[in-house]
């Protein structure tokens, strides 16, 4: 769905933020992990056409990003910003969510329907008339997610969706991701919560100092202890537990671990 070749980027000359990235992103839900400052946000802004590559090419569904405006690309790729305050600019929750669909040329009634559905999904349907700036940080983040979900794009990227979320908020986001996957959308996320990655994403890409140093099925990636260490990333808790206990299998979720133990006992 997305092909990235030879991609480099720098905000200031002589200070590269991304160096020679090659990636082929397919239908699998994908997590991008790595230390702060590794270049993850910059990378997704390049996919979205908000930044123009220094060098290299990005193709999204066979369209060359370079030749499209960000507004045109918005019809196929949605991005939830890392900082909700950078994304929100309307005075009413409902207007904020309807902004995208209306811009895409969807008629008003359909746009309202999309918006309501998205707001219901994140549990903000009873705050339609509130000023977004009066919401809490976690609600703002959910509002931003709804604004992008309502646009019904084929590709959705979430930049650190779980920041400021409590258990309930994380469950809501999980549900959203699951629904999107069921609708056959490509969901990508930048995230620091490894347990969340292990539970929800099939593929994981590790960024470190502007380079991709690891890429593959999530289970494979979390088994590469040494490379993860060099990127200052830790595997999920349950993965580490399994490994400390000396199991050869790489566990990704608690359920998996329990099932495995039960089977072991029954043998």
């Amino acid at each position: 769905m997305i092909t990235v070749s030879n991609l480099s980027y720098a905000y200031q000359k002589g200070n590269p933020v991304l160096i020679d990235i090659h990636l082929n992103i397919d239908q699998r839900s994908t997590a991008i992990i790595g230390q702060n400052g590794a270049g993850k946000t910059t990378f997704v802004k390049l996919l979205k056409g908000l930044l123009k590559p220094f060098e290299g090419e990005v193709f999204i569904q066979n369209q060359q990003v370079k030749n499209r405006t960000a507004a045109e690309l918005a019809k196929i790729i949605g991005l939830v910003f890392q900082n909700p305050n950078d994304q929100i600019f309307k005075n009413k929750v409902l207007d904020e969510v309807m902004f995208g669909p209306l811009n895409m040329g969807i008629d008003k009634q359909q746009a309202t329907e999309n918006a309501m559905e998205a707001l219901e999904m994140v549990g903000l349907h009873d705050k339609l008339d509130m000023n977004p700036h009066d919401l809490s940080l976690s609600e703002k983040k959910l509002l931003c997610i709804a604004s992008v979900v309502a646009m019904d794009t084929n590709i959705i990227i979430l930049d650190e969706p779980t920041i400021a979320q409590d258990y309930q908020g994380k469950e809501t986001i999980k549900k959203v991701i699951k629904t999107l996957k069921e609708k056959n959308k490509l969901v990508m996320t930048i995230i620091h919560d490894m347990d969340f990655v292990a539970e929800n994403f099939e593929r994981t890409i590790v960024f470190n100092e502007g380079k991709v140093i690891l890429d593959g099925d999530t289970r494979f990636v979390f088994a590469q202890k040494d490379i993860l260490k060099s990127a200052h990333v830790e595997a999920p808790e349950i993965t580490k537990l399994g490994e400390k206990l000396g199991y050869r299998k790489t566990f990704l979720t608690i359920e998996e671990f329990i099932d495995y133990k039960n089977q072991e006992r029954n043998l």
Binding site: K48, L50, T69, A70, A71, A74, K75, G78, L79, F81, D86, Q87, I88, F89, F99, G100, N103, M104, S147, V148, M151
Partner: peptide, 30 residues
């Protein structure tokens, strides 16, 4: 920042003067 928020949700902000003005005016409020 706001321009990025707008164009990432499908509002045309690049191009001729008219499009840019149309994108610019709603910016002033926020």
């Amino acid at each position: 920042t706001i321009t990025d928020a707008q164009r990432s949700r499908g509002m045309e902000t690049e191009g001729n003067l008219q499009t840019r003005m149309k994108a610019f005016l709603p910016l002033l409020g926020p």
